[in-house]
């Protein structure tokens, strides 16, 4: 059975709270840039940056990251995933990068994203913001800003929908297929 965990209003409130947290931790938004992980992390990153801009009255650059070229499992996959574009139209050198993804699970995507960002330059810091942390980490990685912590079992699926891509903002916990 599928269970709705967050609706559009919840997601909006989470992003507003996160924006305040980011600004509080970094004492403003100076030198802050936001990079979203494709696909849904990018939309969340854009919204987060927009809210921060409204609060602080500064321009916040937003980039997008496709981590497929940095995956650690490509040699065991039957088919290569389609590679999207990475767009970081600014210098990350000495910037505070807020890395945004929809779901934090094994941590492998974040590991790939960290490696990829560092190939673009040496940021002052990278901080991780996720809408949902569902546990089951396989690497020593944790998020700095968490929308919602969810205890899940491995076979369950967390489905994040965003209106830009799916027409609706919501997070669903699906029972998935028993392994």
């Amino acid at each position: 059975m599928d269970r709705k965990i967050l609706d559009g209003g919840d997601i909006k409130r989470i992003l507003v709270r996160m924006a305040h947290e980011v600004i509080e931790v970094n004492r403003g938004a100076k030198d802050v840039v936001v990079i979203g992980i494709r696909t849904r992390g990018v939309y969340l990153a854009q919204r987060l940056a927009k809210i921060m801009e409204e609060i602080e009255g500064v321009q916040i650059p937003v980039g997008s990251l496709d981590i497929n070229l940095y995956r650690d499992d490509f040699q065991t996959r039957a088919e290569q995933p389609v590679v999207g574009r990475t767009e970081i139209p600014f210098d990350v050198l000495e910037k505070i990068v807020i890395l945004v993804d929809d779901v934090l699970f094994s941590g492998r995507t974040v590991r790939a994203a960290l490696d990829e960002i560092i190939d673009f330059g040496r940021p002052k810091a990278i901080q991780l913001a996720v809408l949902v942390d569902r546990g089951h980490r396989e690497l020593p990685i944790r998020a700095d800003y968490i929308g919602k912590r969810l205890s899940t079992s491995r076979h369950q699926e967390v489905i994040v929908k965003v209106r830009e891509e799916d027409g609706v903002d919501e997070v669903i916990l699906s029972e998935g297929v028993e392994a």
Partner: peptide, 13 residues
Amino acid sequence: KEVLERPIRKVPT
């Protein structure tokens, strides 16, 4: 093509 314009024109794929 975007990879070729990065500061490090190399990916570990």
